[in-house]
Design a protein around this nucleic acid. Structure first.
Length: 266
DNA sequence: CGCAGCGCCTGAAGGC
DNA sequence: TGCCTTCAGGCGCTGC
């Protein structure tokens, strides 16, 4: 599931492959989530940016091709001499003379949009600052978390206090900061520890090329390596690496959640 | 406006 | 072997 480290890894690989090139003929899977791909045909890509889990392909007409990878989305660049041959392709664009940019998404949780910056819809329009934005302070996070009474983990996943965190890195950061995911209020000290932990686990994920549990691949087709470094996510029933207590696995707002009842007391 | 609940999707894994 | 059920979960949408 592409979260900030995975999307940033993709962004870095994609940028030198597509900037300055023209999107020619386009095709989209016939569904409203993917048909906006056709609106980008004819534009030239001037940059590749990221906000939270969203990729923003800047176009020379002033608009952005917005790409969300959902749970199973990936991008790749293929020679256009090879015909599209993949039942899970959801969109493609001829790229320059020789290549094709392909968007693949097995489960169709992703989506595409073409929009003016500043005229975004949905989560992208209301999400908080990027989790790695250095101007975000612990006090900002504390104040933001205080505005809602939802569980702290649910707030992280909402993308509103900060953007880019999904289920894996939320569990990892809450464990590292020793904050219980069910808490509805956090102290200033906990907010500071949480921000530091978030940045640590996201940076580690990025340094490891992302976390591949099943579908995630980089643009060049590589798997990430961070799945071997997870301390908490997916380790329910196994001992806490810090204190040895058996990690608990619960469901919080319909998200599987793993936490240590000793290190992260309610 | 906040938020709870639901639906979307399909391959993998496990039970029998 | 094969059928069935359960699970993974980000986000848009609806309605209170």
């Amino acid at each position: 599931m592409p979260e900030l480290p995975e999307v940033e890894t993709i962004r870095r690989e994609l940028e030198p492959l597509i900037v300055g090139r023209e999107l020619g003929e386009a095709w989209a899977f016939p569904h409203p989530k993917f048909l906006p791909a056709l609106e980008a045909a004819g534009a030239t890509i001037t940059g590749v940016d990221r906000r939270g889990k969203y990729l923003l392909l800047r176009l020379d007409d002033g608009r952005d091709l917005v790409v969300h990878l959902g749970m199973t989305g990936s991008l790749r660049v293929t020679p256009s001499s090879l015909l599209p041959d993949d039942p899970y392709l959801r969109a493609w664009w001829q790229l320059g003379e020789a290549d094709r940019l392909e968007y693949r998404d097995v489960r169709r949780f992703g989506r595409l949009a073409v929009a003016e910056p500043g005229a975004y819809n949905g989560t992208l329009a209301v999400q908080g600052p990027d989790a790695l934005d250095p101007s975000l302070t612990a006090d900002d996070l504390w104040r933001s978390l205080r505005r809602s009474r939802r569980a702290v983990k649910t707030q992280l996943l909402s993308q509103r206090p900060l953007a880019g965190v999904g289920n894996i890195y939320a569990d990892e950061a809450l464990w590292l900061a020793q904050v219980n995911p069910h808490r509805r209020t956090v102290t200033r000290r906990q907010a500071a520890a949480l921000l530091e932990a978030l940045r640590e686990v996201l940076t580690a994920g990025l340094d490891n090329g992302g976390t591949t549990l099943r579908n995630y691949r980089t643009v060049l087709g590589a798997e990430g390596r961070n799945q071997h470094r997870l301390a908490c996510y997916g380790r329910g029933g196994q001992p806490c690496l810090r204190c040895g207590t058996i990690l608990r696995r619960t469901v919080l707002d319909s998200r599987t959640t793993t936490w240590c009842p000793t290190c992260q007391p309610r």
